[in-house]
Design a protein around this nucleic acid. Structure first.
Lengths: 355, 355
DNA sequence: GCGCAACGGGAAAAGGTTTACATGTTTGCG
DNA sequence: CGCAAACATGTAAACCTTTTCCCGTTGCGC
């Protein structure tokens, strides 16, 4: 008996004593609202979150109380309970690349319309950091969007296993429950090569992207098709950033091409800049083309011929894949050739000079 | 005694019966690890998170068990308990603007080195959306970074009150606990005006930024100083995006300026593009300058004269302000003039044409 | 006038982790 | 040899919200 009584006492002493229950950040909790409105916490929750039936009178009192103490629910508690954070994670190799910036912009806007949030990580093209960021983010989010991931396939599968829902942009993975949106770069490169070919170009330099990039491999496929059709493609290692393009120009020119295709528009902008420094005129001395149709590509001098695929569409499609009912398949997006001032007929002189 | 026994029994019946405790996402919980390693959950936590003393033998067993079931702690539960999400929120008017993209890149990289995350929202220059995004984000994050916020001061104060820690970029707010990093645009504009003045420019158009932008007001101050020194400044409403610059050119040219200063480099790129279409030569017919030194500004044709402030430094300083020991003050950053090809002496013809 | 349905609202459990406190064991010292 | 201290480990509360289950009241139909 004594023991029981003691237990009782102990239990009682544990009863909440504090007048006002404030969380670590000093914010009001649902208990504060409940006490002020003289209802239970359940009712507060019903009024503010659930659409459950509550009398107007009580609802009004609760709302007033919530307003007064400035109550806003603790998202961690909500997440813990409902098992969903209403957040998606986005990982991109380079947030400074306008192409990814545009995708991020689209996705985050799309997510926001449904009250979702966007957790983002840049990886600076480092596959190791990319993997770690993805695994870490997977803990937090309801879904993970990997833009052009550079990590190996086994690691990608690990990430797929660690995340509730995985969506890829410009990469494919045979795996149940992984959706993907990919741009048909094979098609894009063929279009560009045909365009340059019809202008009379024979020697085309391709500034390669990062070797780990799936999308580079797709472009390479396109170039092999072009080679099979008799064109000469010279490959020069480059990268995906503006500076990479800038730096690769000198080596590229060593191959005496009449046209150059950059891995993407961002790279192409660097190329144009370096060519200007060298006094090489575009398109008179050298035709230049890019891929992606970045926002600035219409505004370079000269305007950049490129393979355009709408980032808006890309973002929307990617978002669709997060829909729980969406099938785990791969959406293929086809772009179109945008011809601007940076491509033209090859110079006459070249032929005589080489002869 | 009976009562006690009954209590015991009741207690026993409350013991977790489920063989494997899996959370909603089907992931293993700390209980699974504890059961497998035959220790308590407290010990598991100590091994994996806390640096508390645990015998090597047990620690090894726990680690093996965690590995086996693929355990990773539920961040919502951790956040709920420790009251910190190790996440900061970033809000920017336009994620597509390379300047903000660069800042985001810097901050998110900086945050990641300490194991922090970055929650981001773009607002498309809409003060209302900006306010809502900030208030919403404030619930989740340990700290909030507002880039060039456009919302009114009262609302900004509300956000300050709603967030645990608020840091502003390019905006000031008299408020305890709000830190800020601002660029001295007054200085920048003066430098640009002096530069153009020394080249002989008399009529300068300024393409104004968004009226709500604090940083635009600072620039305006700079221009008033220039006017006091006898220069003629013509203001043309514009905006902060590339397209805004593109669209504002025609009106600007109507004022027959010899030089043009754009709100920022992003706008200036649009300006250069439209000028090219119109056949206006830069800098021969018109000198153009920007502000911010965006990554692409060194690569436009011609290179853009601008007021440069390092986004890296900006990001680092902003991050410093999140340090709990950091004072809630305003850090002023001073940039420098970067003279590139887009500015030169005004054309001679202009004078004769006007005479 | 009585029974039942409908409905508003309260009590309490659940969700996964950390940590203060309790407990039990071992070691070191007097 | 005994006692205290140090140390490893377990127990249970706490974090805050949602939701299920239950109870009490009201209104309606017979």
């Amino acid at each position: 008996m004594f023991a029981v009584a003691a237990n009782r006492a102990a239990a009682w002493s544990n009863v909440r004593v504090r007048k006002s229950t404030r969380d670590r950040a000093g914010r009001a909790t649902i208990h504060d609202v409940a006490r002020l409105a003289e209802v239970s916490t359940a009712t507060v929750s019903r009024v503010l979150s659930g659409g459950k039936p509550v009398s107007d009178q009580v609802a009004e009192r609760v709302r007033a109380a919530a307003q007064e103490v400035g109550y806003r629910p603790n998202p961690a508690a909500q997440t813990l309970l409902r098992g969903s954070s209403r957040t998606i994670g986005v990982v991109a190799p380079d947030l400074g690349n306008p192409y990814f910036a545009e995708i991020l912009k689209g996705i985050s806007a799309e997510a926001a319309t449904d009250g979702n949030h966007t957790l983002v990580a840049g990886t600076d093209e480092d596959p190791e950091r990319e993997y770690r960021a993805a695994i870490e983010l997977a803990r937090w989010v309801d879904g993970l969007l990997l833009c052009a991931p550079r990590m190996s396939t086994p690691r990608l599968k690990e990430v797929a296993a660690a995340s509730r829902k995985l969506v890829l942009i410009n990469r494919v993975l045979r795996h149940p429950s992984v959706g993907a949106v990919v741009v048909d770069y094979h098609h894009g490169v063929r279009l560009l090569c045909e365009h340059l070919g019809s202008l009379g170009h024979k020697r085309i330099v391709y500034l390669e992207g990062p070797p780990q990039a799936w999308s580079d491999q797709q472009r390479q496929r396109g170039f092999r098709t072009a080679e099979a059709a008799g064109r000469t493609i010279i490959r020069v290692p480059c990268g995906s950033a503006l500076r990479d393009g800038f730096n690769a120009v000198d080596e590229a020119l060593g191959h005496r091409p009449t046209a150059l295709i950059a891995f993407n528009d961002h790279v192409a902008v660097g190329v144009l800049s370096r060519l200007r420094e060298l006094g090489v005129s575009v398109p008179d001395d050298l035709s230049v083309a890019g891929v992606d149709d970045a926002p600035m590509s219409a505004h370079t001098d000269p305007g950049l011929t490129t393979y355009a695929v709408s980032t808006v569409e890309l973002g929307r499609q990617a978002w669709q894949h997060f829909n729980p009912t969406a099938p785990a398949n791969t959406t293929h997006l086809t772009g179109e050739l945008v011809i601007r001032g940076s491509t033209a007929r090859p110079p006459r002189r070249r032929r005589t000079a080489q002869a």
